[in-house]
């Protein structure tokens, strides 16, 4: 009996063993190794040469490409993520009004999220927003002069941002699920107390959705910092590096120039940035995220 008990203690470990190995080989080791490589000069031909913090020094003091990539990526994240989430939340709220065709609408809005990251959609975006593309032709019909959506350095980044906003469906589905989980007796209690619909929206719906807002915000932010396909296929980082997102810079250093040490340092800088931003979001979340356990949140 005791013997059986003891073997039982470790049985769970056997089941999770594949994941443990995967973690060690494909996540933990690369994570640590990339920090080591970031302190070296390594081109994959010669052995890595230890150079201390030189890569980081170079990044922060003498790399206009890094500064540009950081600037462009920050604008992209700060604009695309909140707009996308606001849109997702708005549509989810409209959809949640117990409409008959809710499933159809949900499907239609979700579809772009399924396809959005593919090369095909990047190709499509390129065609739609070309100088003589459909969008400009439509604008011409209503008398708006054509816009150089992809060729104007002041605009191209926003055209890519639009592609991201177009994929608001997955965040929307989450909001929708959250809204549907709010117990209806809360609203009943509210209406007995004579609260108006608007008041209930701000006092019940919004607070109960804040954990989902937090979750969406963090996940979308982490993804947006690493956005690659659109900028690579549609604009190749141009014009004048106006869509030179961080992932493009990283790709270029690592897989065009094979400066693996330098690229590793860049990837750690990105990691640090993402961690700091996530940390800030979580820190401030105490103030705006509602927790059902009654605010045991310091």
């Amino acid at each position: 009996m005791t013997r059986k008990k003891r073997s039982f203690r470790y049985i769970g470990l056997i089941y999770v063993l594949p994941w443990i190995l995967g973690l060690l080989i494909f996540q933990l080791y690369p994570f640590i190794a990339s920090f080591y490589y970031s302190l070296t000069d390594y081109n994959m031909v010669n052995a890595p040469k230890f150079i201390g913090l030189d890569n980081y020094k170079q990044i922060f003091t003498n790399d206009p490409g890094f500064t540009q990539a950081l600037k462009v990526t920050s604008i992209y994240v700060v604009l695309a993520v909140p707009v996308k989430l606001a849109f997702a939340l708005f549509v989810a709220i409209v959809l949640s009004a117990k409409l008959k065709a809710i499933n159809l609408f949900r499907t239609v809005y979700y579809l772009p999220s399924i396809l959005g990251g593919s090369v095909a959609i990047s190709v499509l975006w390129r065609f739609l927003f070309m100088k003589d593309g459909v969008v400009n032709s439509m604008l011409a019909n209503v008398g708006i002069p054509s816009v150089d959506w992809l060729g104007n350095p002041d605009i191209a980044l926003y055209t890519l941002g639009l592609l991201s906003v177009w994929q608001f469906g997955s965040s929307m589905v989450l909001f929708l699920a959250g809204i549907q989980q709010i117990p209806s007796d809360l609203y009943e209690a509210g209406s007995i107390d004579g609260a108006s619909k608007t008041r209930m929206f701000f006092k019940i719906t919004v607070p109960l959705l804040t954990p989902i807002v937090l979750f969406n915000l963090v996940m979308q932010m982490v993804n947006a910092f690493q956005e690659f396909t659109g900028a690579f296929v549609i604009t190749s980082g141009g014009p004048m590096k106006s869509t030179y997102l961080y992932a493009l810079k990283l790709y270029e250093e690592a897989f065009t120039f094979f400066k693996m040490g330098y690229a590793s340092a860049l990837s750690w800088v990105l990691f640090a940035i993402i961690m700091v931003v996530t940390g800030i979001i979580f820190k401030t979340s105490n103030r705006w995220v509602y927790y059902e356990d009654g605010g045991k949140t310091k």
Partner: peptide, 29 residues
């Protein structure tokens, strides 16, 4: 099982691990 909570937290942490950070050593490997 032993270390279950720790392992579970580690797993959840990898959700947040940006692919960019592990991409280069993986490629070298």
């Amino acid at each position: 099982f032993p270390l279950r909570t720790l392992l579970f937290s580690l797993m959840m942490a990898t959700l947040m691990l940006p692919d960019a950070t592990v991409m280069i050593p993986r490629y070298i490997l």
